[in-house]
Lab assay of single mutants.
Amino acid sequence: TTITITINGEELRIRGDHEEIHKILKAWEEDHNDEEIVRLIRELAER
Rank of each mutant, 00 (worst) to 15 (best):
H18N: 10
H32N: 13
E29D: 09
E43R: 03
I24N: 01
D17H: 12
K26P: 00
H22P: 02
A45P: 01
E29Y: 13
L44N: 02
K26V: 10
E30R: 13
I3F: 09
D34A: 11
K23P: 04
I24M: 07
H18A: 14
I24P: 00
E35P: 15
G9I: 02
E46N: 05
E19P: 05
A27P: 00
D17Q: 09
I14D: 00
L40W: 04
N33H: 13
E43M: 05
E46K: 03
G9M: 03
G16L: 12
I7P: 00
E20K: 04
L12G: 00
E43L: 06
I3W: 12
K23G: 10
L40G: 01
I5A: 01
D31F: 09
I14W: 03
T1I: 14
G9T: 02
E46G: 02
G16F: 05
E43F: 06
E20R: 02
A27R: 12
D31Q: 10
E30T: 12
H32K: 15
I3N: 01
D34H: 08
L44I: 05
L44P: 00
E20N: 03
T6I: 14
I24F: 05
R13V: 15
H18K: 11
I37W: 06
I5N: 00
D34W: 10
I41K: 00
I21V: 09
G16H: 03
E36G: 08
D31V: 06
I24L: 14
R15Y: 14
L12P: 00
T2R: 04
E29A: 05
I3M: 08
N8R: 10
H32W: 11
I7G: 00
D17I: 05
E46C: 09
K26C: 05
T1K: 10
E11G: 04
I5F: 09
W28K: 01
T1D: 10
I24Q: 02
V38W: 07
V38E: 12
I14P: 01
I41E: 00
D17G: 07
I7N: 01
L40F: 05
L25N: 01
E19F: 10
T1G: 09
T6Y: 14
R15H: 14
I24Y: 03
E46Q: 03
I21E: 01
K23M: 13
L40I: 13
E36S: 08
R39W: 05
E19M: 09
N8F: 07
I41N: 00
E36A: 11
H32V: 13
